[in-house]
């Protein structure tokens, strides 16, 4: 953790991320109202400091009279879950396949890498739209789509690292001593590929949060009435002139969180592997 104290950006980033996690965790305690229950009578109330606002809804209400502050708090959960879970799906899949590919080489390697080539040459959004049309939009399916389309990046990095690691002396030595493949992969190779993977994963969390918002714009995001920052921003875009608070707060929340994650990612990269971004 050298240099964290000197990197003001990273500290800021950690504060933002920590704050978001806290918001998400304490959402039920902090929320002034139910985030899903709607009440048309209270529709489009402005934030408390504007004319016509009230302390009952500190950040105003949305088009269905739901409390924006509460939706923002609960939305932090959805955005974090989507960002993290999709990256975990992609990361686990990518690391596993990358290890297998780089370690065993041969036909498995060829098959997996060609599969990756095919997937890269397939337009991601067409895949997302089609898969969500088949499976239906839901939190789990959005995570699945965002996760499964991301494995190839990790697989390529891990494969490259594994290819060079398996030739290295300490691995050769362990093998000479009769270590099994499984032991080698777990104890020697995996720990060494994790640092670059961590850096890529950090940036991916940020990108996934943005991608979730984009899916909402295309009508494929987290289905209503569950609050997600992306869906809130998308709903708010038709009210830019009549209800500016609808888009402003989720927009700011996304901006800050993504900014924070990227700042931490920058710092992690400097710490773990300065040559990292080559393989991204």
């Amino acid at each position: 953790m050298i240099g964290l104290a000197r990197d003001g950006g990273a500290i800021l980033g950690l504060i933002v991320i920590g704050g978001t996690i806290l918001m998400a965790a304490l959402a039920p305690a902090l929320s002034p109202a139910d985030p899903v229950k709607n009440s048309l009578i209270d529709r489009l109330a402005p934030p408390m400091w504007s004319a016509g606002g009230s302390a009952k809804h500190p950040l105003g209400t949305d088009t269905l009279g739901r409390d924006v502050a509460s939706r923002l708090l609960y939305g932090a959960r959805v955005s974090l879950i989507v960002g993290l879970a999709a990256v975990v799906v992609a990361g686990v899949l990518g690391v596993a396949l990358g290890l297998v590919s780089g370690y065993y080489r041969g036909f498995t390697d060829d098959a997996l890498m060609r599969l990756g080539d095919v997937q890269l040459a397939f337009p991601v959004l067409v895949l997302a739209v089609a898969v969500l049309a088949v499976l239906g939009a839901s939190l789990a399916n959005v995570i699945l789509v965002l996760g499964v389309t991301g494995w190839i990046t990790y697989a390529r990095i891990v494969r490259g690292e594994t290819l060079s690691l398996r030739q290295r002396e300490f691995v050769e030595a362990a093998r000479a001593l009769g270590a099994t493949d499984r032991y080698l992969l777990w104890r020697h190779i995996l720990p060494n590929v994790l640092p670059p993977v961590t850096v890529v994963a950090t940036f991916s969390v940020a990108r996934t949060i943005i991608a979730e918002a984009s899916l909402s714009f295309l009508g494929l995001g987290i289905p209503p009435p569950a609050p997600s920052w992306g869906a809130m921003l998308d709903e708010g875009r038709n009210y830019i002139t009549t209800g500016w608070w609808l888009a402003l707060f989720p927009g700011l929340a996304i901006l800050l969180l993504v900014l924070g994650i990227n700042l931490v990612g920058d710092w992690l990269r400097d710490q773990l592997d300065p040559r990292m971004e080559r393989s991204m």
Binding site: L132, A133, G136, A137, G219, P223, P224, P225
Partner: peptide, 9 residues
């Protein structure tokens, strides 16, 4: 239970 689907579905 509200189930969002695409129009074609």
């Amino acid at each position: 239970t509200l189930k969002p689907v695409d129009f074609a579905t």
